[in-house]
Design a binder for these strands. Structure first.
Length: 575
RNA sequence: GCGCCCAUAGCUCAGCUGGAUAGAGCAUCUGCCUUCUAAGCAGAGGGUCGGGGGUUCGAGUCCUCCUGGGCGCGCCA
């Protein structure tokens, strides 16, 4: 018995269709991949339904109801099926044997926390690069979305059978590092009473003063007479990177429980000369040239001068124009460095690359995808998942976040206020590309407006049931409990939803949408709460029914915990 | 001006890649605790799925135009 009823049923349908092709009823080259098996919204239509006949009708040049009727006859012999009906324009509705559902409960209990795990990933080496916040300051609340999404996505892909590698790219080499070094140094000078102003464009946040103090504690007046910006940069860059990464990791690792396999240093990459390697690779393919770009259309650039630069032929791969890979001063552009970095990922053997970015980087998507198309010859070697901006509100008033403007609400502060479970669930209970409002005032209130409590409460109730069972001295239910006693509407609805889990995992993984798991968990909790209110689980005078229901509760708990595990949300025993 | 993303109940959001009568939470109203945790359940009201065209057996979902919002637009990251 497979763990996924959908897959089993779909398999039987596909087999029948294969037979139809063999006997010449259907064309042998007919594509049957778009056929879906699903649960009808209206339970009176049956347990499952398929659109097979309607999908195939047109390409096969046949009447959908005719195909449906023929499928109905052929599938009647199935071990799964009790009754099949053809309805509407050609839906095929299945009523499954109760045995199938009872077996599913046993399957779940025997698989335990691995229920829902899949092999669709085929152990493919996938790298998920996420967070990658510049080491120039702490993580703000908006960054938390990408962090949580990336982490849950990794869990999800692992469960779906991918070989997942989590990486954080540290942009520890570019111009922003000069700015943070200069900022820290200026605060450092000020702390010694020097009369210096923080230059335009420097980071004004208070954390810079803290960093300056740390520097002072460590090195004393060692850097007091350094005035040359280049010297400041060289001297303070490693310190700034270390301090900022420690600040960031305190939030990510300690507060949010997110672990990376690797922190990739852009600075080290350049030291190894990988920029040249990547550019040579592209140059050899003829995708790099010296040229002059048209001035950009929208933004007026005052000091614009046509300039010959080293360009990548991005336009040839779908971008709006070609893109510079080196700056005038010879340093790599951000884009150029990113190309080198992604070439490095390919060299490490990753065949599926996923980047989690903020929507403010949307403009860079096309060029990087173009570069990967040029490097690999494949069109979709790289997936870039854009996190839409989070609009933060406090008491109905918008809070703008900008590190460079010094206006920061740190992710760690929010986590401390609302708790990590609520923080994660609030972000994961949304599709990644929906721009949504995170109301800090509301999030702080621990009321039931936060769906995480609803889901966790279901688990706490289940734990409570098992505690009561012990107190009442009701013996443990065994594997051979008579599950045919589970017949009422709430029980059936719950069991059917349990059957859905493996499918949800596969679909979510394929579409890179962990929010579906969050919604699944919520609905599972809902079905459980309904049953909880409709029936008692512990009936001392009817041990058979008690045992049947307890087996169902156990299976529900296994599934609920498995879904929460993907989300990285805890399942407390009591609330 | 151009590119990408979005628009679904009063509010916050789902909608399983084109399926049957569009869903949930919050808010409003009505019921349910001497019985396993009421952070719960049952029910009611609330929608021309931003608008117009198109594709087909069938569109919230796909194509096109329009309106409104977000993000971005040589050598910032």
């Amino acid at each position: 018995m497979k763990q996924d009823i959908y897959a089993s049923l779909n398999g039987e349908i596909q087999n029948v269709l294969k037979d139809f092709k063999a006997e010449g009823y259907l064309p042998s080259d007919l594509d049957t991949s778009s056929i879906v098996v699903e649960q009808p919204k209206d339970p009176s239509h049956g347990d499952f339904a398929t659109n097979a006949a309607m999908v195939l009708a047109k390409p096969a040049c046949k009447n959908p109801r005719e195909i449906a009727t023929k499928l109905q006859e052929a599938l009647q012999a199935s071990d799964l099926v009790e009754q099949i009906d053809v309805a509407g324009p050609g839906f095929i509705n299945f009523k499954l044997k109760p045995q199938v559902f009872h077996d599913q409960i046993r399957t779940i209990l025997s698989q335990g926390s691995s229920y829902g795990s899949s092999k669709v990933g085929g152990d493919e080496k996938v790298m998920v690069e996420f967070v990658s916040v510049n080491p120039t300051g702490p993580l703000h609340a908006g960054h938390g979305r990408g962090a949580v999404y990336g982490d849950a996505l990794c869990n999800l892909l692992s469960k779906a059978g991918y070989d997942v590698y989590r990486e954080y790219l540290m942009n520890d080499a570019g111009g922003q590092m000069r700015v943070i070094a200069k900022s820290v140094h200026t605060r450092y000078l000020q702390s010694y009473g020097k009369d210096v102003e923080l230059p335009q464009g420097c980071y004004p946040g208070d954390y810079v003063k803290d960093m300056a103090q740390t520097l002072k504690d460590r090195d004393g007046d060692k850097w007091l007479n350094v005035t040359d910006d280049e010297e400041i940069f060289n001297a303070l860059r490693p310190f700034c990177v270390a301090e900022c990464m420690s600040m960031i990791n305190k939030t990510i690792v300690d507060d949010m429980g997110i672990d990376f396999h690797n922190y990739f240093s852009e600075f080290d990459m350049h030291a190894r000369g990988e920029m040249d390697v990547a550019m040579k690779k592209l140059r050899d393919k003829g995708y790099i040239y010296e040229g002059v770009l048209e001035p950009p259309k929208g933004k007026v650039i005052e000091d614009y001068e046509p300039e010959e630069m080293t360009l990548f032929k991005a336009e040839q791969f779908g971008d709006d124009c070609d893109r510079p890979v080196y700056k005038k001063n010879g340093e790599p552009t951000y884009f150029g460095a990113d190309v080198a970095y992604h070439n490095n990922k390919l060299d490490r053997g990753f065949t599926k690359l996923i980047n989690v970015w903020g929507a403010d980087h949307a403009g860079a998507v096309k060029r990087l995808k173009a570069a990967l198309a040029a490097l690999t010859g494949q069109k979709d070697a790289l997936h870039i998942q854009l996190m839409q901006m989070v609009k933060l509100e406090k008491n109905g008033e918008e809070v703008k976040l900008s590190k460079r403007a010094g206006n920061i609400i740190e992710a760690s502060d929010v986590v401390k206020e609302v708790g990590i479970d609520a923080f994660r669930f609030l972000y994961l209970y949304r599709k990644h590309d929906s721009q949504f409002v995170f109301d800090l005032a509301k999030a702080v209130e621990k009321n039931n407006e936060n769906p995480v409590f609803y889901v966790q409460y279901a688990n706490a109730r289940m734990c409570s049931v098992f505690r009561q069972q012990k107190e009442l001295n009701i013996p443990e239910a065994s594997d051979d409990a008579d599950l045919s006693l589970l017949t009422n509407d709430e029980e059936i609805a719950l069991i059917k939803h349990l059957c859905l889990f493996p499918l949800v995992i596969e679909k979510s993984a394929q579409s890179l949408e962990p929010h579906r798991v969050a919604f699944y968990a919520h609905e599972l909790a809902s079905k459980f709460h309904s049953l909880y209110n409709a029936e008692k689980f512990l009936i001392p005078e009817d041990v058979a029914t008690t045992h049947a229901r307890l087996q169902l509760v156990k299976a529900t708990q296994v599934t609920l915990k498995a879904s929460l595990e993907v989300l990285g949300v805890s399942a407390p025993d009591r609330m």
